[in-house]
Amino acid sequence: MSKLRGIDGRLVLISGAGQGIGRATAERLASEGARVLVNDINPETAQIVADRIGGTAVPFDVSDAAAVDLALTRIEAEHGVVTLLVANHAYMTMAPFVDHSEFDFERHLTVNLIGTALLMQRCLPGMVESGYGRIVAMTSEWGVIGWPNATAYAASKGGIIALTKSVARAYAAKGIAANLVAPGTTDTPQLDVDAIDAGLTHEEMVAVYAAESPLGRINRPEDMAATIAFLLSEPAVALVGQVISPNGGTTRL
């Protein structure tokens, strides 16, 4: 496809972009001409990705409200207003539900759900002032349909859906479109969590998921990056609070 409308030259913040879907999204958006802010909790991976795409590393902890505010204040002073936001970071462990510790369950909600909310809260005023914004929050196929041994993760991702739909309703008329991408099982480092839970190697896990997909292949980070890029484009303003599910046809809602 030719370049998407409304991305060239815009400032985009991508959380959790040191690896996986976030990194692929950073690469795609850089190729579309965006000025990319590469966030990750790991400063080294953020820097590697930023160097690769000619972006800027902005490592901070998205679940720490003070850290988010400090980082965005610095970003706005040095780069301008973030009008495109991709809340992509995620924390995930797997365990049987009755064994899942309260501490680890809460960590899913704090990082995934509250972290996404904090990013939105801090970026929305600038978008409102600009009269323009696009927000993509990453949920998960499991946040839509639920999944055994991934209860905490699925609950946090389901919360992100309700959060984003609510934000979408509140801000659509101000020129700000908020939507969600619900990836099916995707070949990223996070897949190791699935593999360990299933007692398989990463490669064996990929083969299992590929066999379960009608398309016959596991989802790639690039599949998600292309979907995110579309939702960040100008004409995607017609989408308000929608969940887009590139999953190879495994779940069809």
Partner: peptide, 14 residues
């Protein structure tokens, strides 16, 4: 070129 198939995508203004 994505893995999007069997989906309903709704540009419906909310």
């Amino acid at each position: 070129d994505t893995t999007l198939t069997g989906q309903v995508v709704s540009p419906n203004g909310g």
